[in-house]
Structures are given as structure tokens and as C-alpha cells.
Amino acid sequence: MDPATWALIWRNLWPMLVATVTQTIPLTAISFVFGLVVALLVALARISKTGPLSALARGYISVIRGTPLLVQLFIVFYALPQFNIVIDPFPAAVIAFSLNVGGYAAEVIRAAILSIPKGQWEASQTIGMGYATTLQRVILPQAARVAVPPLSNTLISLVKDTSLASTILVTELLRVAQLAAAPTFDFFALYGVAAVYYWVICVILSFGQSRLETRLERYVAR
């Protein structure tokens, strides 16, 4: 690579890091937290014995999983304004990603909850716990152990999927790289840097995942 390319990379390392820290990471984190809340509610609705509630949850999961994330983003950002609902790029991205994570993670959480033996519900009931307390104190802490590996996959996918937000004008990591490369067409260099940044985030998250798994395994016989 010629010196001008190195200079371009050097000039953009910092702005791209800023975009990562101020946009990509918050976008991921906020969407993931909201997404998990949506997912838990959808999973509980899906498990519930109330027919319509369960059907609604099934429908939601089906739509989210059956449509492209990019289309979901476009609907929130470009289509809703037709109905006079105008949302800024960043919150629009948060909404789309949260709803998307909600659909995928719901199935993970549902499976994790169903993997906890019925005896745990019964034991909680006999010591006087209600539904919410049982979930919070007994079922979810155990389900977490089952759900952490697949939810980590969801999170790591989400980190990379936030690059799609560049299409709705969020100046996150990929968009900053695009804008920096455009004048000189030096896409290889700057997309390369972006790729390394995404990869580093994912490596750190994978490390966090194994730490968390070890922590949650502490009460299981090995």
C-alpha cells in the first residue's frame, strides 16, 4: 500500500473509534437490552395457556424471523413517515434492532424456560411463591445458564448487524468508513479497518461469554 493510503488509515483510526464507541456500541447495547425485555415478554406469552396471547406471540416471532432485518429497518425509518411517524436515525435503528432481537431471542428464552424441570415450579409453589416470584427467583436464574450461549450468538450477530444502520443514516462505524473512503475510493483500507474493529468487539464479547458461562456453571456437578 502506498504512503497516502497509510496516511488515510491513520487519519481515520480515531474517528472510526469514536463512531464505534458513541454509535455502534451504544446501539448494540441498548437494542440488546430492549430486545431481551421484548423477548422475555414474547416467550412468556408464547408459553402461556391463554390461546390468543400465545398465537399473537407465535405470529410476532414468525414475522420477525420471516422478513429481512434490512426491510424491518427501512419500514421503521423510511415507511413510517408516510403515516406521519418520523423517527430519527438512531432511535429508529434501536426500535428495529430491539424488535428483531425480541423475535429471535424469544425462542431461545422459551426453550430455556421449558428446559427447567416441572418440579422446580412445584417446589416454588409449595413454599408459597407466585408466578412472578418463581420466575424471578427460581426459573430465570436457572434458565440463564441454558440461554447464555445462544443469546451470546444473538448479541454477536447484533454487533455486526448494526452496520445495516448505515443505510438509514446512522453515522456508526461502517458509515464513517464509507464516508472516509468515498473521495479516494480507498475502500479496501477503510473497510479493512472497520472489519478489524468489529472483530475486536466480538472477541471481547466471546471472552465475556466464557467468563459468564463459568460463573453460571458453579452450581452444576462436573
Partner: peptide, 19 residues
């Protein structure tokens, strides 16, 4: 809830909380 609180149950499979 009051009715359930009147008795304590010991299960065949103990059903202790493993965590």
C-alpha cells in the same frame, strides 16, 4: 395461597433449587 401455606411438601425427587 393460604390453603397452600397450611402444609409443607417433601417431594420424591427433593426438587431443591440447584442454584
Amino acid at each position: 395461597a393460604r390453603f397452600r401455606a397450611q402444609s409443607g411438601m417433601v417431594f420424591q425427587a427433593h426438587n431443591l433449587f440447584p442454584h
